[in-house]
């Protein structure tokens, strides 16, 4: 004798799986896998017709038929769709939107063939982060990723980018100087880090003063007559002010220091070195 209860359950399972496959095949569908149960808990999926989002409860569908889920995953891939971690999807979408806006096209087109490829990649990432930072996003984790990927040189590119050196200085110099001359200057600024000192939160007054002395030595060694000191945030600003005050007490005729910017949250000094 047939088990009607079993037949009923089977029917629902088949129906649910067919619906999932049908919705997944629709154009522009986004499938979202979630770790929780839906409401009601026996529902394996929810279809949002308006936004074409198919939300699937992984534990529920695994219980019904994991093979359907595995087939679905393979099908998205075979159709050329991407499988992506939800935690990073917002960043991916922000990057796509940023690229569509093309807001830094002029800078990127200018520098594309003028710098090593890895520097250019660091610049691309830095320009994106600069835009995100302007919008108020926390970019600290990604600044760290630039350091991890490109080392101190990448961090310096990121800082120089944030401070506007690429459009305000490098672009202009590239147009004015001979290529060899410009490349040498670029390397001093980017590789040797002799053009600007960026103070970060891990630096105290003492380390800022030591870094200052290091910059003076580089200026003398490489014949660079000025460098700038940049700081963002109250603690960095206070520490820079104290360090500069100490350096002015010690100052001889080797250098002079001029404050060139002091907004609420940003400070910048220009140090002129008498070579």
């Amino acid at each position: 004798m047939p088990n009607t209860h079993h037949q009923k359950k089977k029917y629902h399972k088949k129906s649910a799986l067919e619906s999932i496959e049908k919705y997944a095949e629709k154009k522009n569908t986004t499938i979202i896998l979630i770790d929780d149960l839906l409401d009601p808990p026996n529902t394996p999926y929810i279809w949002d017709h308006k936004d074409k989002i198919l939300t699937i409860s992984v534990p529920r569908l695994q219980k019904l038929d994991e093979d359907v889920l595995l087939c679905l995953i393979r099908k998205v891939h075979s159709q050329g769709g991407i499988l992506f971690n939800r935690d990073k999807n917002d960043v991916l979408e922000s990057f796509k939107t940023y690229l569509d806006k093309n807001s830094n096209k002029k800078i990127l087109d200018f520098f594309r063939k003028k710098m090593p490829e890895s520097d250019f990649e660091a610049l691309e990432m830095s320009l994106f982060l600069r835009e995100q930072s302007k919008k108020g996003d926390d970019i600290s984790i990604y600044k760290k990723e630039i350091r991890d990927k490109f080392g101190p040189r990448g961090t310096n590119i990121s800082n120089l980018c944030s401070a506007g050196y690429f459009e305000d200085e490098f672009m202009k110099l590239s147009n004015e100087l001979e290529t060899d001359e410009y490349n040498a200057y670029y390397e001093l600024a980017v590789g040797i880090r002799a053009r600007a000192l960026f103070v970060n939160s891990e630096m105290n007054v003492d380390t800022i003063e030591k870094a200052f002395d290091g910059m003076i030595n580089k200026a003398i060694q490489y014949h660079i007559d000025k460098f700038n000191i940049h700081g963002i945030g109250k603690t960095n600003i206070d520490n820079i002010k104290k360090a500069i005050s100490n350096k002015l007490k010690d100052a001889d005729s080797t250098y002079s220091i001029e404050k060139v910017r002091h907004d609420k949250n940003i400070i910048e000094y220009c140090v002129t070195v008498n070579l």
Partner: peptide, 9 residues
């Protein structure tokens, strides 16, 4: 028009 699948860790 390609589908997209977002998964959790």
């Amino acid at each position: 028009n390609k589908p997209k699948l977002l998964f959790t860790s």
